[in-house]
Design a protein around this nucleic acid. Structure first.
Lengths: 233, 233
DNA sequence: CAGTGGTCTAGACCACAGG
DNA sequence: CTGTGGTCTAGACCACTGG
């Protein structure tokens, strides 16, 4: 047997990937167990485990106790994407970031919002509307609702220079969140703010963030036409 | 000191998360090193490392050799999403999946495609156009280009019952891929196929997959209006 | 029941980068 | 130069689950 030694878990992982892509180990096939592979690869089982685990995390392997490790039949691609602060996102593109507050008001939200945010039907929420720009061209429109019961400090924030996006990230404790991607048609209002034509298809992100029992904030981001989001595979 | 013992890396991780969310450890702050924390938590350094690493992977901690571990100032949310085969995606929603081939032809692609797929300008590619349905309603439109030099077996596949989507996953070796999300306005043609109105905003996925030097396939998926994609945070 | 992956431990060496 | 995280190792116990 042509035995090569593998130094670290990354090189073990690479060899595992090679065998999968080369169809050495075919889809659906059971591969040897950790202990045996560790011997073959000349490393500790811990190292073998780390390598196999990392491959399994990408969806290419399916591991189950007692059943062993199989090459996935329908590899489910796991894409990861970084959702940073808008400012960093723009600056990472090498563009100049700027920000404009459109409106800031304390109002009783429409039913659809108060339901989602579980606020009392007559409770006022802070509504912030703002535009993010890249190289002075509209980049994304932010429409945000804030629960002042949970984030009382927001009451004294004007959000004129620091976006709610950025301020919240620095000042709010949160435990969980939900995020959703979709496509939305521009309305006459949003179109004029984003300097695009009415009915343009806009890439949309909806986020809902909460802390323990309480919803903190709900935000919708409408990106200017042409925006693309590229996850790492 | 009120010392609690932590059994496994998950509970260590949870306590670390608690301290971050509770602002025990504030954004930007340097936290103790692994060795010290391991003592405090009453576990091995290896275990502490595993816990801290898993938190760092979510973007909440920033770790650097010698510099130590800091709570991230601008937590970059890492969202992960599973991109499965269309059929499984629909079935997971508890809907009935079906599939219709619209067209299949061997043609010289327009320039924009041949450029992206690095095929020779006069080389024919397999063009497959199909509709995925959920509960007999249009779900997504698939527009795919296949390089027969790389996937010769596709020449004999009719793609009438098995979608190219699914067939490729089972039969193609690939090493890398790119994926992109965006929003596209429906054209008269796509609108009629998806049974929606012209200019509807469609959630769009573009994928390019290759094996070593050769591009295997390029696909665009246009989802019916209202489609949402929800990553795990 | 028994085989498999999941994890913990103590100790060690090393690569990297801050000071 | 030195502190920090990154990793490897051997050995051990355990949880889960397939047969």
């Amino acid at each position: 047997m042509n035995r090569v030694l593998f130094r670290d878990w990354q090189s073990v992982r690479d060899e595992v990937l090679r065998r999968i892509h080369a169809r050495d180990w075919k889809p659906g096939e059971l591969i040897p167990n950790e202990a045996d592979l560790a011997i073959e690869f000349g490393c500790a089982r811990t190292t073998m485990n780390r390598a196999l685990r990392s491959v399994a995390e990408t969806g290419l392997l399916d591991r189950r106790r007692k059943a062993g490790t199989r090459v996935a039949v329908q590899p489910v691609a796991k894409a990861t994407l970084d959702i940073a602060v808008m400012r960093l996102e723009v600056e990472d593109r090498g563009q100049n970031y700027s920000y404009q507050l459109i409106s800031r008001s304390l109002v009783v939200p429409p039913d659809e919002i108060s339901q989602v945010m579980k606020s009392h039907t007559d409770e006022k929420l802070l509504h912030v509307h703002a535009l993010h720009l890249a190289d002075d061209k509209p980049y994304a429109l932010e429409d945000r609702w804030l629960n002042l019961r949970v984030v009382p400090d927001a009451r004294t924030q004007s959000f004129q220079t620091v976006s709610a996006n950025e301020w919240l990230l620095r000042n709010t404790p949160y435990t969980h969140g939900e995020i959703e991607f979709s496509a939305t048609a521009a309305t006459p209002t949003t179109a004029s703010l984003l300097a695009c034509s009415d009915q343009s298809a806009l890439f949309t992100i909806d986020r809902l963030t909460w802390d323990k029992q309480n919803d903190v904030t709900k935000v919708q981001l409408l990106f200017a036409p042409g925006h693309k989001l590229q996850p790492r595979l």
